[in-house]
Design a protein around this nucleic acid. Structure first.
Lengths: 327, 327
DNA sequence: CGCGAGCGTGACAACGTTGTCCGTACCGAA
DNA sequence: TTCGGTACGGACAACGTTGTCACGCTCGCG
């Protein structure tokens, strides 16, 4: 900046005035300064600006499980859009379901003085964020609730989703329905399991734990779980896949076994309509989730001091065929 | 920091020494300081640290077309991993194929003093980055070459990929092969088209422009293009999809028409193996691309001053069925 | 011709941190 | 007891920027 000032023959302060569009700079002076800026390729240092003025860093942080997962990447994109409309950039970090890594990422973001934080929790202890929150960094939890703090949370109606899936399958004639879920320690997996159970109760069906297989899952473990269910004296005629990954493993297992049951998948996925039969899904909009969470965050940044909110987004069944058959 | 110092009964400088693990602080003093840090939830301000010491911001920038696209999100994840192993965080921004937005994002990143920049170019003029590069910010271009600057570039062998795809289809007996590509202004689309043409030449087949349809495409335009090709006096028996999105549109168009030709897709996609028939693809590893680019970037950050490199990653054909049929 | 208003500009401090350098307390040895 | 050295602590400046305030010039009016 002082180089620019020297070249333009003005003081540093005047350069600052020009780059900040402040009033009271003579147009010809401003032109000289702008020319010098151009010539030198000067770009003001936002860190210094932020340090001095105590204002925003123009950045928000997003901690998620894995940007590589299409569900989270769609969410990321939506967050990015909202951030852009508020003039912010997004720092992302993948925690890989590792609570320590989640913590490190969140604290690194805070050390860089992000304006706010969106967290898709992996761990279930978030006390480490309390000092940051007290210091004025708003934090919004997304997709899963936080462990031991009170904060804004945006969720999906996991329970209602699987409950509806059960009802949907029952309407198609099924009375024996299996459930393949993720590790029960994961909030969403637990809720979806509860929804499955509640759906059975609502439809007057008997709970049968041998039709439930919770993760962590892999292609191999899903194949084993399916074979076991099929060997049951009362085998299932339909299976609910607890998330998109598990559903794909399930379909591959069907291919390997040369059998195919009715399927409903939690989470939509891109080519679900191209499979044969097309896959019926419990759809919840990742983009809407990201958007809602980001909007809560920016409301906080704009001064909203109401008590922490908990928003639950609905799911909807998208019937495509795989859940309407009776094999 | 001064609060911590007051609480611990030491000077600010001593606190600084403790948080920087410098020698020459009495253990008991250090303990008092650490306790105070814990009690107050102090986190040092990295902006100020960076400003003073002129060191790294610990951040790199990644400008891409759309994080929501699985191909780019896989790349993002790989970049994140490499960055993490070098103690850096990643700022991401989606340009949406808009050169102006790409420019804005890149310059915003630079204003935040990222240590380096990875750019998947949308535009074809990157002179605006020259001052930054001269000022010492390394820039690596990924997936597409830059417009008018000389810089490290990591590409995929697009040309070789489609040329091989043609050869693969010819081996399966096809002599009339269509090509559906993205907008020819996009580098990768142009290269893939050239590869398609070169493949035909190598196999001694005649060029027929009516079997080529370049984008921008949509579900509808792909359907139209396919119908037109099929009405040709010598209709194609196989079609190459220029990217994963176009291939999906192509498959949906087949479903709508009740016809199905042999298909090879540029870009692998997650459920290609679950479709019927499974889709043969020209696979190129998004993660490998991101990893390679990030590694070049960090090599620069660690002082590599060799002339700009151009790395081209290979593609490989993954035969799954759809490219081995002769309808 | 003098004076006040108002505009354009610059000097200086401060943001939170670290590098430099000096001061001081304490220890062991002569 | 004194001296030299070591081991620590603190004052101060500086990073690049902006907020505060004050200065000087010009212009119009009495």
């Amino acid at each position: 900046m002082s180089d620019v000032a020297r070249l333009a023959g003005v003081s540093i302060k005047t350069v600052s005035r020009v780059v900040n569009d402040e009033l009271g700079v003579h147009p010809s002076t401003a032109d000289r300064v702008l020319a010098a800026i151009d010539q030198l390729g000067f770009r003001r240092n936002l860190s210094a600006r932020n340090l001095r003025s105590g204002l925003s860093t123009g950045t928000i942080g997003l901690v998620l499980e894995d940007v590589g997962n299409p569900f989270y990447s769609a969410l990321t994109r939506a967050v990015e859009e909202v951030a852009r409309s508020h003039g912010r950039l997004v720092l992302t970090g993948s925690s890989d379901e590792d609570a320590a890594r989640e913590r490190d990422l969140a604290l690194e973001f805070c050390a860089r003085r992000v304006d706010g934080l969106l967290v898709i929790p992996s761990g279930n202890q978030h006390g480490f964020l309390v000092p940051e929150m007290r210091a004025g960094t708003p934090v919004v939890f997304v997709d899963r609730p936080p462990g031991d703090v009170l904060a804004d949370t945006v969720l999906v109606d996991n329970l209602g989703g699987t409950a509806n899936a059960v009802a949907h399958l029952v309407r198609a004639g099924h009375t024996s329905i299996g459930f393949l879920g993720d590790a029960p320690g994961i909030y969403t997996a637990g809720e979806r399991l509860r929804g499955y159970r509640e759906g059975l109760v609502r439809c007057g069906l008997r709970q049968r734990d041998r039709l439930i297989s919770m993760g962590p899952h892999s292609q191999a473990s899903v194949a084993v779980a399916v074979s076991q269910m099929l060997r049951d004296p009362e085998p299932p005629t339909a299976i609910i896949g607890g998330n998109n990954r598990i559903t794909l493993w399930l379909l591959r297992a069907f291919n390997a076994l040369g059998r195919r049951l009715a399927v409903v998948s939690f989470d939509d996925f891109e080519v679900a309509d191209l499979l044969d039969p097309p896959v019926t899904v419990i759809s919840h909009d990742a983009a809407a989730l990201g958007r809602a969470a980001a909007e809560v965050l920016f409301a906080r940044l704009e001064g909203d001091v109401s008590p922490p909110r908990r928003i639950t987004l609905p799911t909807k069944i998208v019937p495509r065929g795989s859940g309407e058959v009776y094999p």
